[in-house]
Nucleic acid binder design. Sequence first.
DNA 1: TCAAAAGTGTTATCCTTACACCCATGT
DNA 2: ACATGGGTGTAAGGATAACACTTTTGA
Lengths: 351, 351
Amino acid sequence: MTAGNKKERNKAGETAIDGKNSQHEARDGVEIGLNAAIVALERNEPMILTVVSNGETQAANDHQHGRQYGLPFGRFEPLTHHTMEMGVRGFVEEQTGLKFGYIEQLYTFGDRGRVVPRVDGEMHVVSIGYLALTRMGEHNPVSAQWRSWYLAFPWEDWRQGTPEIIQQEIVPRLLEWAKTTRAKSRGGPVDPLDRVNICFGGGGVGWDDEKVLDRYELLYEAGLVYEAQRDGRRAAAEIKDPPWLGEPMILDHRRILATAMSRMRAKIKYRPVIFDLMPASFTLLQLQQSAEAVSGNLLHKQNFRRLVEQGGLVVATGKMSSETGGRPAKLYRFRKEVLLERRTAGIRVRR
Amino acid sequence: MTAGNKKERNKAGETAIDGKNSQHEARDGVEIGLNAAIVALERNEPMILTVVSNGETQAANDHQHGRQYGLPFGRFEPLTHHTMEMGVRGFVEEQTGLKFGYIEQLYTFGDRGRVVPRVDGEMHVVSIGYLALTRMGEHNPVSAQWRSWYLAFPWEDWRQGTPEIIQQEIVPRLLEWAKTTRAKSRGGPVDPLDRVNICFGGGGVGWDDEKVLDRYELLYEAGLVYEAQRDGRRAAAEIKDPPWLGEPMILDHRRILATAMSRMRAKIKYRPVIFDLMPASFTLLQLQQSAEAVSGNLLHKQNFRRLVEQGGLVVATGKMSSETGGRPAKLYRFRKEVLLERRTAGIRVRR
DNA sequence: TCAAAAGTGTTATCCTTACACCCATGT
DNA sequence: ACATGGGTGTAAGGATAACACTTTTGA
């Protein structure tokens, strides 16, 4: 059953509002995939839990990337999982033995035309991405490994200054892409050069750490990430021997990870989600370095401390840590009561 | 085929990352429903496009609400619709004749256990909510009608001061609910009274216009909206003859609308989405009243004007409007270039 | 003694908020 | 004349960004 043309089924005026008017063709050839970007911190590096593809299925036409990483993945089984979030918790624990606390839905991707061949036709996969946060070492994963998210997105780590890859590899190729694209599509909705500037902070526009997804999608369109070629997209700028940027991932998992990073970077600024990555007590420098790891840039130390303490986000526990290398530091813990006092409680510091 | 127990299929270590290891049971009994909250403004009232349920299916055990409203609804057909967004555009136009410009995905709901009986078993519906924006009168809908979103959420309109329903109906019942709930679940994650205060701005916490979804979910949990009873939820506070708050909608459509309102109210503060609801040229008062209609509260006139003009969001067209009742007003238009200059461009004014 | 990190204090600047007041038109 | 909405100016207050400097430990 390949589910023929149903274009005419919903005519104007039928107002199919409860899905009841489709007695035949009950099976639709759609399944729900659940994907989790599970984040933890290890020595000030944001890590995500990955599983390794055996390189058989979709890496078949894959010359240089035989082994690819992916996010933990499972199917939504309505009869087993009462909710989709419980589905995510369930298959992650089954596959990797890992439990986590915080979970949040990111986005539902169905646009890339993911089709999986099956014995009786084709199965379309709609994948729902989730962001989950946990602490390193609480549970040890099996048959999965922690990897820095900056391996897939090297241009997102500005903690040691502007990454070289941006000026050396990305910007020149994107400018070339913008030129040829602009010539082709006169008067499109957005000027491609503007897009490059907005995404990568050129032409007076500054770098916006939250635009992780926009940048990935631009690189995909310009044919500069491996997935673009793998998905059969012809590079607009016809680049010879393109140096694929960042480590690729299977299917659309790198896109889901980009969504997770964008969400995470936006959210730490107005919600205290960073504490789901922290131990129960910590020094202010540890907290700052965690925020820096997530946002990918350095923060101003004094202002960070003042904001975080005076903002009521943390309180001193009274204990000290002398394992810091210098003067012993006060230990702090998250102060839950902020949520009652301020409507935005996060880490909003520059520099 | 009712798809038996598959709990054991994904064992630890299998790392099912590409969905290939399920040769049997290819059909899962899941379908994708697409729902659109389509918003437009009419005489400073935010309207959503609704279709009317015939009251047969799920309104069967429905004594007082035989006719219920719903959002335009369709199934995602991967073979017809190249993308899910195109699917939304397609079925909305087929059902109602309406076209729209802006569209954005909201959230994917699969938790309420929506089950539709089919000839060969049960079909679980996962519904993806969308927010779409359009201008009144560009196209006239057929077999659908525009209705104010405040009919479903009367407590969200603070433009004439605090709505009476809050102090008279909502707060006393929620306080009672919080008391009984607190007694039952000692030491739960969040104190129910705190939740009431955070959501409805009691106890020193102010009103947050963006918390539309949180408020609806709280009212649902407390059994104060009709849907809670209809879904078989026992009211925690065992309220006698409860006056259901706001107009109910079919299935989970009111929840999707709440998500749309929350997103919209949050987004006008940092993205120029309000202009997708405005005509090409407008006076500043019209713009202000549109923002007030969406956010549900009044804004400070002078500051609004300064912010919006000096922020570079609009430019004067040079023409004037003399249909204002007072002194003729300059006409303005949206200034697209803001997007290049500032990373947040929206309407962020108090009072 | 020096490096490393903790911690304190102060200043300049910008943005938000609020208030006061004048202008142009129709009735 | 007056009601209605349009439009301008400015001052107070608070938050933010930037800088300089002192303190406490371990090696």
